[in-house]
Design a protein around this nucleic acid. Structure first.
Lengths: 102, 102
DNA sequence: TTGACATGCAAGTAAATTATTGCATATATT
DNA sequence: AATATATGCAATAATTTACTTGCATGTCAA
């Protein structure tokens, strides 16, 4: 889970995920075209996303195709963010009790 | 939004949020007691959480009280993770078409 | 097979992050 | 007033991150 949070911490990597959302299966070259940095830099960002299991790749001839895997994002939500939802927070229900609300 | 993602990228900061979830309003000293690092390091983590608007503080006498603000987490979900939910992804419906499923 | 294209690999640099130490300030307690 | 407690501020060191340059390898197409 730590790898996922760390992968999401970078705007270039979030942008890569957004690209794959609309152009799933995109090649490395295609993803590079969007970004103003070297191909090697993009490769390293993609590796970080692969390590977090947010992207998987397959080789097709001389091209590398990138596929989005949304499952870790679901897990971030289900196992983490969910607990922080307003109506899940105990202190708020405590506040309601104190305030006498119903 | 970038500040929120960056704040969440560190396990100590996620742990601080978890502490505040159960002990909202905790003092700096109280939060330090959980962690095996200097008070100054914890202060810097809390500043990062404040910059992301995930924590707000008020001074009470010689103590500083920390309160959790879950709203930025809601926004992360609503404006970002939500778009990646499995049934939101066009490529999956495309896959279904190709596979001929209904 | 030769040349162009797509990607892989590795070392190096600059900047950001994480954590430290040392000292200052403000509040509470006796 | 004197002491202990809680926090603030600043400089520094170690590590990680983000990105670069240079060269190697593998694949397609004429």
């Amino acid at each position: 889970m730590d790898r996922v949070f760390r992968a999401l911490a970078n705007p270039t990597r979030r942008r890569l995920l957004d690209s794959l959302r609309t152009r799933n299966g995109e090649t490395l070259g295609g993803l590079c075209a969007d970004l103003d940095m070297t191909r090697q830099a993009v490769t390293q960002h993609l590796r970080s996303l692969e390590d977090a299991n947010l992207v998987s790749t397959i080789r097709s001839g001389r091209e590398k195709l990138h596929y989005l895997n949304p499952v870790p994002l679901q897990e971030i939500y289900d196992r983490w963010i969910h607990k922080y939802e307003l109506n899940q927070l105990q202190f708020l229900t405590d506040l309601k009790k104190i305030a006498g609300g119903d």
